[in-house]
Each structure stands twice: as C-alpha cells, then as structure tokens.
C-alpha cells in the first residue's frame, strides 16, 4: 500500500487508463499547464501532450457537447467542468443529450464519457461555486453518478467510470483534494453501484457519501467513547444506488440517519428514507428516520454562516442520541 492524495489518486486513475487506451483523452478549461483549478492534472500535458490533454475555450456547451460527440464516434473522452455549478451553462448536454441517446436511439449508440467536476462547499466561494447538485443528476435516468470520499474509492471508481459505456458524472469533493489515504500499488478497480461500509456498528446506521463520510466517521468515534456503536455506510455511487446495502444495515441497527452536504429539500436523503419506508424494513425501525443536510439556502459567503448551514460532528452526535433515546 502507498499513501496518496485524493487529487493524485484521480490523476493516476486517468493517467493509467490513458496509457492503456489511446482513445481516452481529456478536455477542460485550464487543465494543461495551469494543472486544473484544483491542481488535479499536474504533469499530464507534459506526459500526454496537448492533443490528449486539451485546454478548451470557456465554452461548456461546446466542449461537453464535443465530448458526447466524440464518445458516440468512437473515443472515450473525460471532460472536466471546473465547478459543478457550471453544469448550468451546458445543462442541455447533461440532461437531454448524453443520458438519452442510448435509450432513444434504440440501444445502438453508446456514450462512453466521464464528466468530472468539483463539487461542494467549504472554500468560501459562496453561492455559485459551492453547490452539491447530485440530486438533480440522480433525477436523470441514463446517467451514472459517483461521489467518492477517499483516494482509494476515487481511483478505483474513476477507472471503472472510464471503462463504462455510459455517461458517468464523477463529482469530486473540493475539500478532499488534499486529503490522503492508502491505495494498493497494484492495479484495482471498484465496481460502480456498490456501497461501502466505512465503519461497522450495531446501534444506528448513518448513510452518507462524499466529504460528509469523514464528518460521520469522526462523530462515530466520539459516540464510541459513550459506548454507542454507529455503522457508517458510504454510498459512493448515487445512481444506481445500492439500496440493498442500506436495507441490510437498517435491519441490523433498527435506526437510520442520513447525512449529506446538499440542501435538504429534494435531496437524496428523502429518496433514501423513502426507499426504507416503502419496504418491510420500515417495520424494523425503532425510531423515526432523521435527515441531516444543508439548510435550504444558497451557500452563504461568511465562513461562520457557511459552516453553520451544514451538518457537523456535534449535530450528528446529537441526532444519533435522539434516535436512540
């Protein structure tokens, strides 16, 4: 095993796939000599050249559309949107083009494309550079949606995404880029659509994903000191979602809390809660399901406010105690 940052795990996944498959290439704004806004692609243009690490005009509709067009005509593009908020300026491509083609063209056109983008807040960038928009994407059949929480998951899932024959939205967590974790030296992949139990426990299930995984794990550590044993499930892939992993855990712990950084209303917490409530696992619950999510506001600038709208360890600890009371 070797230690690596989340950003470098992403870079290594892309670089390995690019070395293996000439049809894999990258497009995005300032991903060449600038190294990408978050430094993910450092050194790649030097290794692969400008023909495969392509700096684009500030023109998301053109280059995301071009990624889709390249995918249908035989390439396996990876396209980077600098901030996930900017999906708004190429929404037609994400909503109406990439995810629809395979189905509406009778299964005869594949769109093997990965769209990587930096998601989430905590950087003081305020309302237009901090959103967590994954629920919008999960409302679009035909897309796959991944939100990795560790370098290990980021690398293994991204390699699977690049080899997948569908449009995959890969939402990277800005605040995790510099975090470190261990990965094997040998090659590995992680299947899309499989959740991971990040911490086993018997008293309460916390379902989460992305950077909130770490917040939940820290809360679980605090609770452990009080002899409360929390299970933390990292969904990793949000579409398709591994609902069976959630049901299995809730059957065991009889308590469910869902934690995400995205706003509460219309967030995936509702989907996860409903998935439990509409099955017989509902009968296993000893307390109502709780959702901890961002307040329903645009992300505010002031750091006190930005932090204050989000779930944190204290809020999670309190919520766990409430459901167990």
């Amino acid at each position: 095993m070797v230690e690596i940052t989340y950003a470098n795990a992403i870079k290594d996944a892309i670089s390995e796939e690019m070395r293996k498959d000439d049809n894999v290439f990258m497009m995005g704004e300032d991903i060449g000599v600038y190294r990408g806004a978050f430094g993910v692609t450092g050194g790649m243009v030097e290794e692969f050249g400008e023909d495969r690490i392509m700096d684009t005009p500030i023109s998301e509709t053109a280059f995301v559309g071009a990624a889709i067009g390249a995918a249908v005509s035989g390439m396996r593009p990876i396209v980077e949107i600098m901030f996930s908020d900017f999906m708004s300026v190429c929404w037609d491509m994400i909503l109406n083009q990439a995810p629809k083609m395979h189905y509406m063209f009778g299964g005869k056109v594949n769109v093997p494309m990965v769209l990587r983008t930096a998601s989430g807040g905590g950087t003081g960038a305020a309302a237009q550079h901090s959103q967590s928009l994954e629920a919008m994407l999960c409302h679009i059949p035909g897309l796959k949606v991944i939100v990795p929480s560790t370098p290990y998951d980021a690398k293994g899932l991204l390699k699977s995404a690049i080899r997948d024959n569908n449009p995959v939205m890969f939402l990277e967590q800005k605040l995790l880029y510099r975090t470190k974790g261990m990965i094997p030296e040998e090659e590995y992949t992680i299947p899309i659509g499989v959740a991971d139990v990040k911490r086993e426990g018997k008293d309460c299930t916390i379902v989460t994903y992305g950077r909130m995984v770490h917040t939940c794990l820290n809360a679980a550590k605090q609770l452990e000191e009080e002899n409360i044993d929390v299970e933390v499930i990292d969904l990793r892939t949000l579409l398709p979602m591994d609902k069976e992993a959630v049901l299995k855990s809730v059957r065991k712990t009889k308590h469910l809390i869902i934690v995400h950084e995205a706003v509460k209303t219309g967030g995936l917490g509702g989907e996860i809660a409903a998935s439990v409530a509409e099955t017989d696992v509902f009968n296993y619950l000893d307390a109502p399901i709780k959702r901890l999510a961002s307040e329903d506001v645009p992300v505010p600038f002031c750091p006190i406010l930005e932090k204050g709208i989000l779930p944190d360890e204290d809020k999670i600890v309190k919520a766990v105690k409430e459901v167990l009371a």
């Binding site: 559309g65 071009a66 067009g69 491509m93």
Partner: peptide, 19 residues
C-alpha cells in the same frame, strides 16, 4: 433540441480526426 447538433458534430469530427 435546437442547437446541440453543432457541438455534437464537433466532437464527432474530433474523434474522426484523432482516429
């Protein structure tokens, strides 16, 4: 949808140029 045919064709042409 009106308009996307052009960016899609750009990408397709890029693929042909590369391939």
């Amino acid at each position: 949808i009106l308009g996307p045919s052009l960016p899609l064709a750009c990408g397709s042409a890029l693929a042909h140029k590369k391939l």
